[in-house]
Amino acid sequence: MDRPIAYDKLAREDRFVRMRAREVAELKVSQGLPPFPDLSSAESIKERVHGIMVGELQAMEGAGRSVCDFPEAPWEFTMDMARQVWDESRHVEIYLRLLDHLGGYAGEFPETTILWRCACAEDAAARVAGVNRGLEGLACDVFNQLVHIARKIGDPVLERAVDFVLADEITHVRMGSKWLTKLTEGDAERRRRAVEFQENIDERFNLGGVRREGDHDAVSISIAIDVRRMAGFTEEEIERLIKTTQRSQVY
């Protein structure tokens, strides 16, 4: 088997339309719309949920590649990645059903593949740093806010389902922290590169100021400080993330 695969090998049914994230954002801005769904209406919640669904799909595919691509990694690493595949497959199922619950369908909005590209890092340490700490950290922010919004609009189905997904994501961040440390033991340079990769992803997913510290109702993506602490991010890491969002350029 080819290990790893090129990122353009990602296979999709015809019903999905794939586009670059930048192009999607630019076309929406050109229509006088916000570049990313802001959770201010039922439609924007549906669009956000669709974005999460394709993100979960790519997370399942990425974790599957980690099981496949690193046969020389410690067995416990493979076990954690295999468990993550199962978790992500349930998340895909959950979000497909939530889309249905919200009156949407798979393929209703274009799919961007930034997440998948991050999951194609060649080094296992970089991959867990970028995916499990960077992207799953972002998932903690997004899902924590979605639980709040669901509670506010009185949608217990959305609230309960996302609450359980959030619990899984916290576990995945912890796995990422564990394997970043174990895989880079005695190799400071490898650790530096992996952390740098994660920081680039964090910066990218600040989405030009869309992710910020603030009230769930006031910002498009609010940083889930308490959840991040629970997932094992240090105070220093959380503070650094908040600082980078403050210097990120508005789209």
């Binding site: 695969i5 296979a11 049914e13 990425g62 099981v67 496949c68 990645m81």
Partner: peptide, 15 residues
């Protein structure tokens, strides 16, 4: 088989 299935998820179009 486990590693093959894991790798194939990304290469398989059908949900």
């Amino acid at each position: 088989t486990m590693r093959a299935l894991g790798g194939w998820i990304a290469l398989t179009p059908e949900l």
